[in-house]
Amino acid sequence: MRRFLGGTAAAVALAVAVVLVLAFGGMLRLLEGAELEANAHDRAVQMKLVSGALASSFDQAAKFALALAETTARRADVAAALAAEDREALQRLSQGPYDYLKRQAGIQIYGYHSKDIRYLLRMHKPESFGDDIAGFRPMVVAANRTRRAQTGVEIGIAGIGLRGIAVVNHGGEMAGTMEVGLDMRPILDLVKASTNADIAVIVVPSLGGIALDDKTPRFGDLNLAMSTDDELFASLLKKSRIRPTRDIEIGEERIDGRAFSMVTQPLVDFSGRLVGLTIALKDDPRAASRRTHTELWVVALCGGILAFVVFSVLFQVALARRRGV
C-alpha cells in the first residue's frame, strides 16, 4: 500500500512537472515566433537604411565633384588657357585649388581634356598628357558630344570612381572639358562607420565593356573592385552565386560560420547602364536571439525537473502526515 501511494505521488508530481514544462514551452514558442517576425522586419529596415545611405553618399559625392568641375569651368582665365591648350597656364591656375582640394576634400582626379578628346593636363599626374582617351573614357566622350555636363560612376582602365565632368566654353565655342574625380573607398568607410555594415563594390567587366587591371580579385564574372573587408567578401563571392540585378534584394548569408544580413543593389554608371552591384553585410541580430532562446528552453527544462522534485517531496510529506493522523 505504501509503495502504491509513493508511486501515485511520483506520478502526480511528474504530471504537474510535465504540464508546467508544456506551459513554459508554449509561451516560449509564441515568444520566439513574435521575436523572429520582429527581427525579420528590423533586419529589412536596417538593410534598407544601409542601402539608402550608400546610394545617397554616392549621389552626393558625384554632385560635389561636378560642382567643383563646374566652378572651375566657369573661370574666364581657365577657359582661355584651355582654348589655347596652354598647359603651363592651366597648371599655374590650377595648382593652388588642386592642392587644397586634394588635402581637404580627398580629390583624386583633377584634369582638363582638349576638344579633340585628348588629356591635356592631369594635375594628379602632370607628366602624363596628350593621350587619346576617346576609346576608354565614355563619360568624357558623352560630355564632349552632347555639350552637357556628366556626373556619376565611371569605370576606366585605372578602376572605378565617381566623376563630375563640366563643359568649358570660351568665346561662344566649346574649348574642352574639365573633370574632378573622387575615390569611392573613403565613401565606403564613412558609410560603414555610420551603419556598422561592411560594403563592397563589385564590377562585371562584361557589362561595362572595360576590363579592370589584373590586380583586381576576380571570382568568375565578378571583380571585387573595392571593399571595407576584402577577406570577408572574397569568402562570400567564392561560395555564393551572386548576380547583378535591377532591384534591391535583401537576404541572409552564412560566411565562415557567421550569420549575416545582406543587401545587394545595382551599380549603374553615369549613363544608367548596369555595370555591377554593391553588397552590404551586417551581423545578423538573430544569432544573439538564438542563444537567448536556447537558454530559455534550458531554464524551462530545469524548471520542470525542479517542479517534479519539489512536488514529489511535498506529496511524500503530505502522505506521511496523513498516515500519522
Rank of each mutant, 00 (worst) to 15 (best):
R2C: 08
F4C: 11
F4H: 11
L5N: 08
L5H: 09
A11I: 06
V12Q: 05
L14K: 03
L14Q: 09
L20C: 08
V21T: 10
G26I: 00
M27F: 06
R29W: 07
G33D: 12
A34Y: 11
E35C: 05
L36E: 14
D42P: 03
A44Q: 14
A44E: 15
M47Y: 09
V50N: 08
S56W: 13
S57A: 14
Q60F: 15
A67Q: 07
L68G: 03
T72Q: 15
R75V: 02
A79H: 05
A83P: 13
A83N: 12
A84R: 12
E85Y: 09
E88I: 01
E88Q: 12
A89R: 12
A89W: 00
Q91Y: 04
Q95T: 04
Q95E: 15
Y98Q: 03
R103C: 02
I107T: 10
Y110H: 12
Y112D: 02
I117H: 06
R118Y: 02
R122I: 00
R122Q: 09
R122D: 05
R122H: 06
H124G: 01
K125N: 15
F129C: 04
A134D: 09
G135S: 12
M139L: 12
A142W: 01
N144C: 12
N144I: 03
Q150G: 06
Q150F: 02
G156E: 04
G164K: 01
G164I: 01
A166W: 02
V168K: 03
H170S: 15
G172V: 07
A175M: 00
A175P: 15
E179L: 11
V180C: 05
G181T: 00
D189H: 06
D189I: 04
V191L: 03
A193V: 07
A193R: 14
I199T: 06
V201F: 01
V201K: 07
V203L: 06
G208P: 00
L212A: 02
D213F: 07
D214L: 10
L222I: 00
L224C: 03
A225Q: 11
S227L: 07
D229W: 01
L232R: 14
F233I: 00
F233L: 02
L236D: 04
L236W: 05
L237P: 13
K238N: 08
R241S: 13
R241P: 01
I242M: 09
R243C: 03
R243V: 07
R243W: 12
T245M: 03
T245N: 05
R246D: 14
I248P: 08
E249A: 10
G251N: 04
G251M: 04
G251P: 11
E252S: 15
E253F: 06
R254D: 11
I255W: 12
F260M: 02
L267W: 02
D269T: 01
D269P: 00
S271F: 01
L274W: 05
T278R: 04
I279K: 04
K282E: 14
D283R: 15
D284L: 08
A288F: 13
A288C: 06
S289R: 08
R291E: 15
R291M: 11
T292W: 12
T292G: 13
T292Q: 13
H293S: 14
H293L: 13
T294M: 10
T294E: 13
A307G: 02
V309D: 11
F311A: 04
L314Y: 14
Q316D: 08
A318V: 07
A320V: 11
R323T: 03
